[in-house]
Design a protein around this nucleic acid. Structure first.
Lengths: 197, 197
DNA sequence: CCCGGCAGACTAACCAGTCGGTATGTGATC
DNA sequence: GATCACATACCGACTGGTTAGTCTGCCGGG
């Protein structure tokens, strides 16, 4: 079999995905040409279209990766053995940390989702909805248990928190005064304080 | 003088701006061709390039309009005669309402800002920063007065709130269960509750 | 000898911006 | 009040450049 890795040790599909992620985040999906991606990955168009059906498939793959990762982590935190306040706090802080750790994916996610074809967009929305639901269920559990205020509908609270997460890619910089963990703690704090009965 | 309005009563530059706003929000800046804009406005390219220097100028004009509007409104609320809690609450709720009222502009703003050339981008950032500062000053005033918690840096609180505002264009629908005012009240509530000492 | 894994030239489409042209209004001059 | 000069407001064909995706073919291992 011909080599799938070349000079670098990592396989070509992953190199392409990594290059695409960086470039999409840097200049945006439409402003990144397929030619630039393959050059950054050290291959040619032939290689890209051998592994991916289209430029859009590349974008979708970035989404799928992020979604899988975040859903896994949320499930782990939500299903842990601990009081609801604790589980929500941990989940809320964790999504901040992992978002900051993958800021490129995050900015692609929020800026380029509408570039997907209707069907693929629908698919992504469905998965995102599942994530949203799980988070909401946590809040509703706390509301039923009386530890969270019921003044605001749980749905809106979820959107409130994820708005701030979404927003991270706009302002967070690793060179800023706050570390990832500090930001995560603060944002989780704000959420829980807003939910105090 | 030749007509600047034609069949429709509104002047051509405004028709162009309105068409561009709708299309940019619908398909994104890069996916909207100049040809589509002029067709939607019922004119031709000659007219567009007569009034605007480039496609990018059109985008910048959309920004400038939103920024002016929001800054004016914030200033009015922030400088009012009332306790800080009240002024912050009113300002926080108002930005939600005006954002929902101009959802097209909002989604363009947050999705297409990086399509501007570096200089124009810088200009927009400067104006946005001024807005941010004014909002932050309100929170700090409340913190000094002891009516807001100092647990979270004011900067972060501002980003927290504007994250949720930013996010509105992703999920809010006028056909949903909540009216503009209800959403605004809830989000302002969440902010103030998070700030309770 | 066959097939996965690629190279790279090629194509068909598209698009921002230009440019020469037309039509209508306005102000000055005689 | 007729003529001329000039400006504003637009039209639409054209250009130069870019781009996603295709296709033919080479190359090396099983």
């Amino acid at each position: 079999m011909a080599k799938a890795t070349d000079g670098d040790g990592t396989p070509v599909p992953q190199r392409l995905l990594a290059a695409a992620t960086r470039l999409f985040a840097e200049r945006g999906y439409d402003r990144t040409s397929v030619q630039e991606i393959v050059e950054a990955a050290g291959v040619t168009k032939g290689a890209l279209y051998h592994y991916f059906g289209s430029k859009e498939d590349l974008l979708q793959e970035v989404y799928a990766r992020v979604l899988r990762l975040q859903q896994e982590r949320l499930d782990a935190f939500a299903d842990a053995e601990a009081p609801v306040e604790r589980r929500l706090r941990d989940a809320a802080a964790d999504v901040v940390v992992t978002t900051i750790e993958n800021l490129d994916d995050a900015s692609i996610f929020f800026r380029s989702m509408h570039h997907l074809s209707p069907e693929k967009n629908k698919q992504v929305r469905i998965e995102r909805r599942r994530y949203h639901e799980r988070f909401r269920a946590l809040i509703e559990e706390g509301q039923r248990a009386g530890v969270f205020s019921v003044a605001t509908p749980a749905d809106l609270v979820v959107d409130y928190h994820f708005g701030s997460v979404h927003h991270l890619s706009t302002w967070y910089s690793p060179d800023g005064p706050l570390s990832q963990q500090e930001v995560a703690d603060h944002l989780a704090d704000l959420l829980l304080r807003a939910l105090r009965p």
